[in-house]
């Protein structure tokens, strides 16, 4: 049956999921929006969620899964509480992105695409975040931009995210 990423109880979660689906019932065109909001709610997109969305919007599970696996934003597995997204734009690449990733790996012990065993951090590489003037840059939890990061600053930055 349904798995649940948080402790709110599956029924409550299903209800909230249905609230996201409701405005798009029978409208396949809303798929990406529904997936985005559902991932915001649940943290990732497990099978039971995709099944519910498929049935709600009237598309096949194959279609839903095809979309989920096409777009980099969607995740099939639970992610850490904090998402460390290292910018892989050209400017960041030219200005030391590789060193930044290596340093982050050294500190948190996981490779890009992975989550720390304590579920605190997920490390990932993202496409240009548009902070090229601040290269190399990293965006945490999709909102906090940290620019011109020197390796020795990393512990201090990470401290802000429990």
């Amino acid at each position: 049956m349904a798995e649940c990423a948080c402790n709110c109880g599956e029924d409550e979660l299903t209800k909230q999921l249905d609230k996201i689906i409701d405005p798009y019932r029978g409208q396949p065109g809303g798929l990406i929006q529904v997936l985005t909001k559902s991932q915001e709610l649940i943290g990732y997109l497990p099978k039971w969620v995709q099944v519910r969305i498929a049935e709600g919007l009237g598309v096949s599970l194959q279609e839903v899964y095809g979309v989920v696996t096409f777009y980099a934003f969607f995740s099939l597995i639970p992610r850490g509480r904090h998402k460390l997204s290292v910018c892989a734009g050209t400017a960041c690449y030219v200005k030391g992105m590789k060193t930044l990733i290596k340093s982050l790996r050294d500190v948190i012990g996981v490779k890009p695409g992975q989550t720390t065993p304590d579920s605190r951090f997920t490390l990932e590489i993202v496409r240009c975040i548009g902070a090229c003037g601040l290269a190399p840059a990293m965006i945490v939890d999709g909102k906090d931009v940290h620019g011109r990061i020197e390796p020795e600053q990393i512990p201090e930055i990470l401290e802000q995210y429990a």
Binding site: K47, Q50, S60, L61, Q62, E63, V64, Y65, G66, T69, F70
Partner: peptide
């Protein structure tokens, strides 16, 4: 029937059922 769809992208693209 829609038992098959394109999944993943680029070189890793796979034609298969979901999951």
């Amino acid at each position: 029937v829609q038992a098959l769809a394109a999944e993943n992208r680029g070189f890793d693209t796979l034609i298969a059922p979901a999951f």
